[in-house]
Simulated assay, not measured.
Amino acid sequence: MKAVRIYHYGGPDTLTYEEDVPEPAVGPDTVLVETTATSVNPIDWKVRSGARQKDFPLDLPAILGRDVSGVVVAVGRDVRSCKPGDRVIALADATYATHVAVPSALVTQLPDGVDPVDAAAIPLVALTGDQLVRRATRAEAGQTILVSGALGSVGRAAVHAALKLGAKVIVGVRGRQLAEAEALGAHAAVALDDDDALAQLEPVDGVADTVGGAIAAKLLGKVKPGGRFGYASVLPEEAKAPSVTISRVFAEPDPVTLRAFAEDVRDGKFVLPISQRLPLQETASAHERLEKGGGGKIVLIP
């Protein structure tokens, strides 16, 4: 099969496109998916560079990638939930490849009406945002939840999840993004780069943080005693709040929630901007653009 592998930690130039990589084996409870598309996420370049080696050590050479959209081409002997020919999406591993082996319990059928290429952008960001809200902040109807970096892909998913739960959502963005943030349908917005605006912000029940750093430390101080602060970024070591429960989120597979997000994409209820669609051969270029930041997901097509 074709795949992109790395042989050592480093920059984007460590990503090597190869055309003769062995296909993954199909175990009794796994399915083999022929990839329609995958996507790149910030965690990918952080793992590739070695910055997250402690959290996500690699057995080199390794194939990166967490998102996959594709067609089932083979199933293990114990699989009953899907069959060859099914279109599926999943949060998986080693997805920068033309074929991906996934435990059958982790895949979900791609709803009719969803673009199978753009669907590859959904899994990691949707599940990270959802779990920030549901598991870390434990948002409930009527509570006030602040989502930082709300115009980013994970932030958008967190806003969507919080609104579906009936929470009052405040979106945190840069001052120049306030007008754009109105389209998210939140109850209010605050400029994260405006110290005066942050000082006037009333305490909230929870924060779902996707920004990290100094901004996260400031927002931690805005959580009510007994509240919750969830983050999927990096929180400064000096950031402490004894009366607040602080939780770091690493997205876990959840095919039911993933299917719900895909249906909401189909129905126009959740919008996940795609900035570029690139061939798998240009994964290194995708990583370069990803590290520079910017809006929208980058999808890779084998």
Rank of each mutant, 00 (worst) to 15 (best):
E140C: 09
A199K: 15
L163A: 01
G212S: 08
G175P: 05
R135M: 11
A197R: 07
A189L: 01
G172R: 01
E202G: 00
V154N: 03
V147A: 03
R134K: 12
L124G: 03
G212N: 07
A162M: 00
G175C: 09
V169M: 02
K224F: 09
R174S: 12
Q131N: 11
P225L: 10
A139T: 12
L184K: 08
V173W: 01
V114T: 13
A199N: 13
D193W: 10
A120F: 08
D193V: 08
L178I: 11
D193E: 13
G152A: 08
G142A: 09
L151G: 03
Y231W: 10
A161F: 04
Q131V: 11
A126N: 08
A217R: 14
A120C: 13
V114Y: 12
L127Q: 10
T128A: 09
A126Q: 05
G221Q: 14
A121F: 04
V159Q: 11
K222D: 06
Q131A: 08
Q131F: 07
G113H: 09
D118H: 14
V211W: 06
A162E: 02
P123E: 11
V171W: 02
A119D: 10
G206A: 12
K222Y: 03
R134N: 11
V207T: 07
A183H: 15
R138A: 15
Q200H: 15
V173Y: 01
L198D: 10
A216V: 03
R138N: 14
E182R: 15
G226N: 13
G226K: 14
L192W: 00
G206T: 08
D194E: 13
Q200T: 15
G185H: 05
A121T: 09
K168E: 07
V159N: 02
V204W: 04
G206W: 03
A189I: 01
P225K: 04
Y231A: 05
A179C: 00
A232H: 08
T144S: 05
A214M: 12
L192V: 09
T137Q: 07
D195T: 14
G113N: 13
Q131I: 04
H160M: 02
D115C: 13
R135I: 14
L192N: 00
H187Y: 08
A199V: 14
L220F: 14
